[in-house]
Design a protein around this nucleic acid. Structure first.
Length: 244
DNA sequence: AAAACGATCAACCGCGCACAG
DNA sequence: CCTGTGCGCGGTTGATCGTTT
């Protein structure tokens, strides 16, 4: 049976969000909360599907979303978690307050994978890539990507892919390799393209055991700071943005 | 100066799960 | 149970920007 589309696509806007749309969505959610994503666009006066609104909110407009470059420790943690969890980005993201699964996934695919390959580690298995005589057993890049194909082992409990000892071994190997290679200078040759008002120090705080409320306040402050650069705040319809 | 190429990331798509009726 | 619905997730796409030739 054909699955119904998530929304009636006819007449719905797609593509990049405009500032006005952001304003509408933000105002609506801040004033009304989220009860049903399907109804959000209609009630907020947006010609978007609920899914699109949800994504925009989660990945961009959410007050606690942390933007900016990943710190080295964050990257290390991502690698460690990925070796245990695989491509379960949402689970990985849950270890990084304010980071979104999309952001982590993008960072993995564009930066960390290359980093690991450069170190001679297989980004899928996290084990050293075996050099073979070019026969079919040594998978080319395309096949390597196959590792990203959704596994059917989702029913396996978390951390079942590799046991912790093995994970730590792999991670230690990775760290040793990093120490012997000036990766950062290599990676930063092109400069860091992520510009953000969010400092590295701040980004570490949230995972260092600060109280939730402090983190929230910080997050909101940073959100205001960062969003301010692209949103004209005095154009917001209402000023009663009462964050908890 | 401009074309070609590569990197990045926001957004979309489709599948699967959970849950209600 | 079965079916429909909504949501969340992971993979992929494509626009945009920066770099190289």
């Amino acid at each position: 049976m054909g699955r119904q589309p998530c929304c009636d696509k006819a007449g719905l806007k797609r593509g990049p969000w405009t500032i006005e749309e952001d304003h509408k969505l933000m105002n609506f959610i801040l004033n009304n909360g989220i009860h049903c994503w399907r109804t959000v666009p209609k009630l907020a006066g947006l010609l978007r599907c609920g899914k699109s609104c949800r994504l925009r909110w989660i990945n961009y407009l959410r007050p606690d979303v942390k933007r900016g470059a990943f710190t080295e420790s964050e990257e290390d943690q991502i690698i460690q978690l990925h070796s245990r969890l695989g491509n379960r980005w949402s689970k990985i993201a849950s270890h990084f307050p304010g980071r979104t699964d999309n952001e982590i996934k993008n960072h993995w695919n564009t930066k960390i994978k290359k980093k690991l390959k450069l170190l001679g580690l297989d980004p899928v298995t996290h084990k050293p890539i075996e050099k073979t005589d070019g026969n079919s057993s040594n998978k080319p890049d395309d096949d390597e990507e196959r590792g990203m194909i959704p596994r059917k082992d989702d029913e396996k409990p978390e951390e079942s892919r590799l046991d912790l000892d093995e994970t730590n071994d792999i991670f230690n190997n990775y760290q040793m390799l990093c120490e012997s290679f000036d990766l950062d200078s290599w990676l930063n040759q092109g400069g860091n393209t992520c510009s953000s008002s969010y400092s590295m120090e701040e980004s570490n705080k949230s995972s260092m055991g600060e109280t939730n409320s402090t983190i929230q306040q910080e997050s909101v402050k940073h959100w205001v700071d960062s969003v301010d650069s692209f949103l004209s705040w005095d154009k917001l319809y209402s000023s009663d943005l009462n964050f908890p």
